[in-house]
Design a protein around this nucleic acid. Structure first.
Length: 465
DNA sequence: ATCGGCTCGCGCAA
DNA sequence: TGCGCGAAGCCGAT
């Protein structure tokens, strides 16, 4: 049990001191939860030490890059729960409408100290940079979204899972520790700061001028820590015992779905990892396989977006991949589908269409099908650059967990990132290929088609938003 | 059903 | 400098 936050998670973002302001402010943005939140714990600790109140602030932008009704609904469900959970602890949380960095600076003007959590995408870094440059007090960033902080693992973009694995494992035991949740001494509920009212999320969503082109998946998937923990429990009971066998079987539902909640910081990877470690001792192998995905692969994605500035474009790919795709640029593509045809699931390939529908109507797709889905976009586009753009755009539009570091690494993987060369063939060159016959050979793809059809019928019948 | 070849480059051993 | 091996494969030979 750890009582203080490890130094390796804490970074001063400017050189200013703690001022004598009205409160300590935790600018919450990435880690949208109360539990296992290192940034929040650090802020509570500092507030107690200074004898001050703690104000938690969230800036809600109506124009978050690529976000639509589906994402906002899921996020606001989680924020509503977090606000009330904090309130139960005597901590005031306000949500204000506007660009997150601007909100942080406005409310931070009265703060003694601004604590923020960490995000690795370009716009998330830019927001924190702006706040650290313009704030009048110390700005401290606390990592609470990974098991091993990125800089501790490596100081460069890693080449593949195998090169990052040992570096993560070296630091894992010292990072996989519980910590005590602190208590705020000075109740801050009476702080007089305005907040958006989250009582009626639908009403608030109508008020915000957001992109409404993609419907929410509520009430089938609900955002928030309670949902996340319920899914985790269910996974440990039902999915984990079969994880080794079924993780690549898209007709089953033996996945954890943790990526949805992790994306919005509604659950901590540390919390998940500890729960998994504590599960049945008979499941050593399954646990290892799951932790490999949760920690090594997820944190490889974060390493990628942190150190590779081109993570959202074709340029991010390793040279051998760009070279081999260029050599096959003139290969005949037949058929070629437009983005519209793809989004409408109007291809000749029923397996592919089913995966597209799963994504479009349920906001989720089984991991194994995510690979097949993307590989075919490369095969059916007029150029690899356009394929990259299309795959990423559709990914981010429909997946609840789109726009995550995992999204960028996942899309780039389709084009060779973190992978190796394979037998050369048309269009793909030496990039790994996947085929419909592979699906037939390796899983029960017809059961998957049925699963998707059934789920979509259920969704359409019961949709409320 | 199972196996080997395909093919690249990092990281480590020497 | 050489060598082993890898984020989830394909394909043809046996």
């Amino acid at each position: 049990m750890q009582t203080t936050i490890p130094r390796t998670r804490i970074q001063g973002l400017n050189s200013l001191r703690i001022r004598n302001g009205s409160y300590v402010m935790y600018w919450m943005q990435q880690s949208q939860r109360l539990e296992y939140n290192h940034a929040l714990e650090f802020a509570i600790h500092k507030a107690n030490k200074l004898g001050q109140k703690l104000l938690v602030v969230f800036g809600l932008s109506a124009h978050y890059p690529e976000a639509n009704l589906r994402h906002y609904t899921f996020m606001l469900q989680g924020l509503k729960e977090t606000q009330s959970a904090l309130s139960d602890r005597g901590i005031k949380m306000v949500i204000q409408r506007g660009c997150p960095s601007v909100i942080a600076l406005i409310l931070g003007a009265d703060a003694s100290l601004i604590v923020c959590d960490r995000g690795y995408l370009k716009h998330q870094k830019a927001w924190r940079n702006e706040v650290s440059l313009k704030a009048h007090c110390a700005v401290v960033q606390v990592e609470s979204d990974v098991i091993v902080p990125v800089e501790i693992v490596s100081d460069k973009a890693e080449y593949a899972a195998r090169t990052i694995r040992s570096k993560i494992k070296k630091n894992m035991d010292s990072s996989l520790v519980r910590f005590r949740h602190g208590r705020l001494k000075k109740d801050s509920l009476n702080l007089n700061v305005n907040s958006l009212d989250l009582t009626d999320i639908d009403l608030l969503l109508k008020d915000l001028n957001i992109d409404r082109s993609v419907p929410a998946v509520s009430p089938f998937l609900k955002g928030g820590t309670t949902s996340a923990k319920k899914s985790l429990k269910k996974f440990i009971r039902n999915g984990l015992p079969r994880y080794g066998r079924n993780r690549n079987q898209p007709q089953t539902d033996d996945t954890s779905q943790m990526s949805l909640y992790l994306h919005f910081g509604q659950i901590s990877p540390l919390h998940i990892a500890l729960q998994i470690k504590n599960a049945d001792d008979q499941l050593q192998k399954e646990k290892e396989t799951f932790l490999e995905e949760l920690i090594v692969r997820r944190e490889l994605s974060i390493n990628f977006v942190h150190y590779n500035q081109a993570y959202d474009s074709f340029d991010c790919l390793p040279d051998w991949a760009k070279k081999t795709l260029a050599e096959h640029r003139a290969d005949k593509r037949e058929p070629i589908y437009t983005r519209e045809q793809l989004e409408n699931a109007k291809t000749h390939d029923d397996y592919w269409n089913a995966s597209m529908k799963e994504m479009k109507y349920t906001g989720f797709m089984h991991g194994y099908m995510r690979m097949y889905w993307g590989k075919k976009i490369l095969e059916w586009s007029d150029s690899p650059e356009n394929a990259f753009r299309t795959a990423l755009a559709i990914n981010n539009k429909y997946f609840i967990d789109g726009r995550d570091p995992n999204s960028y690494a996942g899309v780039a993987w389709l084009f060779g990132l973190h992978d190796r060369a394979w037998n050369e063939r048309p269009i793909f060159g030496k990039i790994r290929y996947m085929s419909a016959s592979g699906l037939e050979r390796k899983c029960d793809i017809h059961a998957y088609l049925e699963k998707v059809e059934k789920r979509i019928r259920f969704f359409q019948k019961n949709r409320t938003i």
